[in-house]
Structure formats: C-alpha cells, structure tokens
Design a binder for these strands. Structure first.
Lengths: 242, 242
DNA sequence: ATGTGTGAAGTGCTTCACAGCG
DNA sequence: CGCTGTGAAGCACTTCACACAT
C-alpha cells in the first residue's frame, strides 16, 4: 500500500459555511487509512448495540469506556467524516449510526460472489453472519464439473465460473471472496478483475498482484496460526522469562 | 494491544562472543511485534518455494524482488533472531528455512482445537491447509446435543465441549479456534482460558477480553467486508474524484 | 567487490492536551 | 461547566544508507 495520494490540505480545514453542522464534507475514501476504515466498521457495530439498548446520546468518553477504545481516536476518526458531535453533549446515537452505516454503504445491500466451492467457500456461503446486515451472496462459483449444479447445505447453487462476468454485470456485484486453492488464486483473481469486481477478500495463501483501483484483503489462516504459535511459550524452550 | 512490554535494550546490542555465527541469541518473543511475527511466517513460506526450486543461496535483495518485499526489512527482521546471513554472500536457503520454521515452532506438529461445529467450524476442521504443515486438528467441539457425536464430511467427530479441558490437557493443545456465534464467544473464550489454551483465533464478531499471557487474533469477516465496501466507489456517490 | 547488520531518518498511526463551542 | 475537534507530541513500524565483514 503506497498511499501516494495527494494530501487534501484544506478539506479538514474548512469550517461550516452556514451555521449548521456539516454531516458529510467531501472526503476521498482513498485518503482514509485501512485502520480508520476498520474502526468505522467497529463503531457501527457498537452503535447498534447502544441503539438496541435505547441509549440516545453518548460522549466519546463513555463510548470508549464501554467498548474498550480510545476516546481521542474516536473523535479523530469521526471528525474525518464530518462534525457529528455536539460540544458539551456528545453524539446522538441513532443519527451517528445511520451516518456511519451510510458512509460504509451499508444502507443498501451489497451483493457478493464467492469463487471456490470447497469446504470453506460453501461454509462462507452458508454463514449467516455473511448474509445478514447489508451483504448477500449473489452466487457461488467453481470450475469443477463435479461440483457445478450441486447445492450447499442451505441450498445455494454452485455455478460455473464461466458465468462469473455475466452475473457480476447483471447483479452489479463489486465484491468477490476467493476461496480457491493457492495454485488457482492468481488466475481466479485476474478473472475477478476482468469481470469488474472492485474488491476481493482473499482466503488463498498467496499475495495477489492486482491493478490499482482493486482492493484486496487477505485472510490467511495458516499465517494467523503460525503467528500465534510464535508467541506460545513452548515447553521445550525454557529460555523465555515467565 | 497495549504492548507495555519492557524494552530489551541490550538483547540486540550484544555481539557474538566467540567468532562463530550465533543462530539463536536469546530473544523474548513478546518483544517481537506482530508485524514481524507475521512476516516471519511469510518468509518461511517463501523459503519453502525457493527450496523446492533448488535455490541454495539468496540475498535479501533477490529475495525481496522475487516476493515483492523490502530487502532492508528482511535483513532487519532476520537480524532480530540471529545472524543468519554471510556478508558478501547472502543467506543459505535451506538452513534459514529450518531456523525460521523452528523459531515459529513448526518443527513439531501443533495440535489445535476448534470450538463451534457450525458451518465455519466444520469447514475449518476439514480444510486441508489447516491440517498440513505443522498443525493438526485435535478435536472439534460444540455444546449442541444435536451436533455432538456427528461427524464432518472428512470424518472428524463433534465432541461435547465439556470434554474440552480434559482433551486440551491430554493432547497438550495450546491453540484454540473459536467459531461459535457472537453471543457465545465470551463465555467460550473464558472456558478456553480455563482449559489452559494460550492462543485463540477468534472468528466471532466480538472483542474478547482475556488475561495477559493469552494471545488473540481476530478474523472478523463482516468487518473485512465492510471495510472493503467502504473503498468501493459507489455508483450513487458521484463526489469522489476518479 | 558484494551484501549483511544497523544507526538514523522517514512515515504514519495513536494519544495527549487544550482552545473554543454550546 | 462538559465535550468536541484538532494541533502537536509521542510512538512504532518502515526504509535508507553505510560501516564493515567476508
């Protein structure tokens, strides 16, 4: 991630022209770090909790204490997207929730395709948490004739990857999830880009090299496990202090 | 991650006492950042590729170019763990591979338990990449009487979570994978800690609060998707510059 | 001559601390 | 007063650049 994006020196400098609060000053998403974007998603989730509890207003202080976050960071993050707070009062939970959800594009359902109908791909297709809250599986693909036409446990059909481009275009899909073996990942990723996908969630243990404009996030289970393993004080190694 | 670890000011300062290269100077894993640990895992994978190709020696320069990494970072990372390189020559692939694998504890098989036999838990249990290369599924647990006793597609039995502590102790398991619903995650995590697990890979969309000494890594699929969604130039939003 | 190991510089994320608004 | 929004400081990871080992 090279982040050679020109700085928007004046965007955040601007004060509201009229007396009202500015919900949505122009901001370039590409200028927002993935750290901030990730926290945005966390905030939406936390706000949903507060809203369900009937909480109307919350200060960054209380919000931080409640969810084990840093209040300054919350304020800074939120200020990136607009002036949502009221000084001396805090933030209006429901309104903020709606705003942030809209910034993430969660106010309308995003269709997602999954490429690779192995164990993992099928499990993700059937995974409830994937289906709810603004995301829906548009289709599940594979290139194995033995799998095409079959259905997952919850009844999602496995389609021929040859149909990928057509379905992506027809359903307006922007996000693809890659759950194919490592050996197939690079070529599948290229097909995804050719089909018009703009973001990929890659479960294959491969670093994908993609054109600018296409975002990738890698979820590499083996690397996660190995990294965890690294920190485990092994019974054999007595060296590490307790 | 608070990283309040005291600095090991002198550990990296020490020069070799004898004339020979020191493969393994004492280092405290807790003083190694997760960034470095993650890359360590990447390096091992890359080295396996080179070794399979029959490459004997590699310089940080070539290594970096081959796998799209930064040569200075490679040298710095490796220097954290010992002096593996030979000046003017580079690194001996097979030897370095072995050393790094040993540092990650991959030279012996790590047993892993999975808690939560839903779609995802079963898929991970069956996932080949999980099984190979130093990790093995010791057991798959659930608390649903309807699932206990059943088997995954590849034949792994679903066991009662009541057996968790006994099996962890008997098999010497240190790593747990949590694939239960969000509502159950906190209590399951507590059980994991009580059972003696030292590292958790958490797929539940919840921030686990655990005692020091227990590492967590979160894989939150919904947050990944939402973060990706954030960067997608939505057809509705015309504001963003091309 | 070549390439490691490493101090120093660079970069960017996080946290502090406070001016100023409500 | 309380709390936001934000410049400035702090901190951590990355990259540079070079002394020095081979």
């Amino acid at each position: 991630m090279k982040t050679v994006i020109e700085r928007g020196e004046d965007v955040s400098r601007r004060r509201p022209a009229a007396g009202t609060r500015r919900p949505h000053p122009a901001f370039d998403p590409r200028a927002v770090s993935e750290f901030t974007a990730t926290r945005l998603s966390v905030y939406v989730r936390c706000l949903a909790v507060l809203e369900a509890e009937g909480v109307r207003h919350v200060s960054s202080q209380h919000f931080a204490r409640r969810f084990d976050l840093n209040s300054a960071q919350i304020r800074k993050d939120l200020a990136t997207f607009g002036e949502f707070g009221v000084r001396g009062v805090g933030y209006e939970v429901s309104e903020l929730h709606k705003h942030l959800a809209s910034i993430l594009g969660l106010d309308r359902t995003r269709r997602v395709v999954i490429i690779g109908a192995g164990h993992l791909g099928q499990a993700l297709a059937d995974y409830g948490g994937f289906q709810s809250d603004g995301f829906a599986i548009a289709a599940l693909f594979d290139n194995d004739a033995g799998k095409i036409g079959a259905r997952t446990r919850t009844g999602i059909a496995v389609r021929d990857i040859a149909e990928l481009a057509a379905i992506v275009a027809r359903e307006g899909v922007a996000i693809g999830v890659i759950t194919v073996p490592a050996s197939a990942a690079a070529s599948v990723a290229r097909r995804c880009v050719a089909a018009g996908l703009k973001a990929l969630l890659n479960f294959a243990p491969v670093r994908l090299n993609l054109p600018p404009g296409v975002r990738v996030r890698n979820v590499d289970l083996k690397i996660h496990l190995e990294t965890l393993a690294f920190y485990i004080p092994s019974p054999a190694t007595k060296g590490a202090p307790a």
